[in-house]
């Protein structure tokens, strides 16, 4: 059976290539990033790549199956988003941080723990923004003046 219209094999191949690229980039983000929110977004991007592949296949074969499958995937993605964001909320409340390394106690048995101090030393150095952050720090001189004792919300002068 011929393709229904101008959606040829070459076009299908283009869709598959873009879907493969999105899938691989999402997997890289999930493996390499440590921020829980970015990891969640990376899984969503993997799902996008897969959905693109399915829609391309469905159109090429001339039936609705790919789109039906993508609708189911969309449902699963919505469920995953709700549960993942609830989990991120709970994990943040426990540790006050979005770092996934803090939860390495639940890793697979036999895996060596990631050293937080080592990861700290491998972090990218912070570049100070132009402005007050990049001003030089001067040594304070003289006697420290008396600070106002009232909080600023109650001061009237």
């Amino acid at each position: 059976m011929a393709p229904p219209d101008s959606f040829t094999f070459d076009v299908l191949m283009s869709y598959l290539l873009v879907g493969a690229a999105l899938m691989v980039l999402g997997m890289l983000g999930f493996l390499a990033r440590r921020n829980l929110i970015v990891m969640f977004l990376s899984t969503e991007m993997m799902i996008q790549g897969t959905a693109l592949t399915l829609v391309g296949f469905g159109r090429y074969h001339g039936n609705w199956t790919g789109q039906v499958f993508t609708i189911v995937i969309l449902t699963v993605a919505a469920c995953e988003a709700s549960i993942a964001l609830a989990l991120i909320l709970i994990l943040f409340h426990r540790c006050s941080s979005l770092d996934v390394t803090l939860w390495q106690d639940i890793r697979e048995p036999g895996q060596p723990p990631a050293l937080v101090s080592l990861e700290e030393s491998e972090a990218e150095p912070v570049e100070a923004f132009a402005g007050p952050e990049s001003y030089p720090h001067l040594t304070p001189a003289g006697i420290e003046p008396a600070h106002p004792t009232l909080p600023w919300t109650e001061r009237r002068d």
Binding site: M23, V24, M27, S97, L98, V100, E120, A123, V126
Partner: peptide, 24 residues
């Protein structure tokens, strides 16, 4: 934050993902 400036083993992750990409 530190966890935004430090990727987890970036070389191994990049290698594995792009080898998968080449396989695809």
């Amino acid at each position: 934050a530190t966890y935004d400036r430090a990727a987890r083993s970036p070389f191994a992750a990049t290698m594995s993902c792009f080898v998968l990409f080449w396989g695809l």
